[in-house]
Amino acid sequence: MHFTPGHDHYHEALETGGLDARAKIVAWLGLAIAGVLTPWGQWPVLGAYGACWLLLCLALAAPLLKVLRRVIAASPFFLLLAVLLPFRPLEPGDHALALGPLTLSAAGSELALDMAAKATLSVACVAALASTESLAGVTRGMQRLGAPALFVTLMNFTFRYLLVLREETQRMKRARDARAFGGRWLWHARVVGLMIGSLFLRSIERAERVHQAMASRGYSGGAFAVSSRALSGAEWLLIASCLLLFVVVRLLPL
């Protein structure tokens, strides 16, 4: 995700249709899991899951262009994993594909495509979830769904303090550069190292102060309480129809 100071990342994603985050998490996560569990080589099934993704995006009014931009921005990270697979040594039952001067493994290439497709689908699901629900909503929803409280707390804190840390880093850099620091040569590494160390110490001290602020309001460890309500009919409908759809797609003779 790209962070812009002053931009409200929490709330840029509106809580579409007022549906509870839990319903959306189950729907998107269900689709990602269904996609990943597709036996490899079953391209029509994966294609149908792609169509499900589009359908769900439309149903939840996800901003398609923005979601796609996010998927593309993240793609180098997960596509890199698949890039080397076609070059694996041939195994019995495999055959070689010629690509110019290169010899590729046919099985390896198919595996690479399969991985790339599934990874793209999974990332697209996460990106769509992030665009149809605020981060605060997602973490609350996860906690209500029974995700480990420590994990949820960690996620909240990471997001909450990432920007604060970034601003602190920028202030330090500005102060450094204002004193005519070039920062291009190897001997400048010491200064950068000192900055990182100082950022680390400041973070520890901040953590201590945050903890004091929490303790002074009666916190004694454990999960933050979240309020909860029963899922509405519409939310149950979304969950049930999504899960049913994913199962049916898998069982269809495609």
Binding site: A136, R140, R209, V210, Q212
Partner: peptide, 14 residues
């Protein structure tokens, strides 16, 4: 009720 000097220390929720 303690109100800390730096509100970023006190406001830690989403």
């Amino acid at each position: 009720g303690l109100v800390f000097q730096n509100p970023d220390d006190q406001l830690f929720c989403p």
